[in-house]
Amino acid sequence: MIKVDGLSKRYARTVAVDNISFEVQKGQIVGFLGPNGAGKTTTMRVLTCFMPATSGTASVAGFDVLEHPMEVKRRIGYLPETPPLYPDMEVREYLHFVGQLKGIPKAELARRVAEVSERCSVADVSNKLIAKLSKGYKQRVGLAQAIIHNPDVLILDEPTSGLDPKQRVETLELIKSLKGDHTIILSTHVLSEIEATCQDVIIISKGKVVATDTMDNLTHRLKGSEAVAIEVEGRNGAELATADVQRKLEQVSGVSRVINKAEGARLRFEVESLQGRVVRAEVARAVVESGWNLTELAPVSVSLEEVFLQLTESKK
């Protein structure tokens, strides 16, 4: 549905997007992930025909963005980072205007406006001035605007930025409910949102794609190995040698690494397992069988955040 090949965009002095390529299949919902300034918005602006690329090609539904911009624009719904709203218009009036802009036939216009208002839950404010709406409502009007012409492709630039947690969840639910009808690209720098909504994820950093994978693979890759934090003490207050404990732990089968995290007199370690091995039980048994007390054992979650940081930092 969307094909980007060797796309670069240079501004006067900076390179915003540097030779990126990716493809999105029909009906997919893809997360476009990257820190601020990574080139997400620029890529989206090229796809929506807002600005031309410096080099490389991009096509939507088989139409090149440079050669057939009108065809592309007809098939794309776009929600920029700040929803493009006219504060002095009423919601219905605004959606009506956008519908006309997108070339919806007159006969269908009123019906489409009512439909998208319903779908994005803004029907109850359709007679209100946009200036008077809360941020969450504004975002939903922005979404309604993007889907009014029932586009094949939806491009959403940070649709949840600036929303409170409840609005965030609602907006994401709404986006999820659009899946199937539309191919969706969703940009964000909040990982949990990608986890909750997307099947595929494209991570970009400093204008380059650093990872493209399905969400499942990525989480697996990141969470495949297990890490546990443990605290050990000698029975009846007996002194323990850190090195002894560490050696013992390293001998447990399936353990790849033991990191000493001692805090003062408390002996703490972080034990990492080999890929796909569960070592919690073994570690506990090893400690107890050595005659020590196991005072704490807790899984350390390798968060998507950490992986994301690793991926984006390493390319520096």
């Binding site: 807002f50 624009k73 794309i76 493009p84 709203l85």
Partner: peptide, 14 residues
Amino acid sequence: RSGTIELLLTSPIS
């Protein structure tokens, strides 16, 4: 200023 130019320039209108 308000960013609505993005709506106009990404709509199927010249």
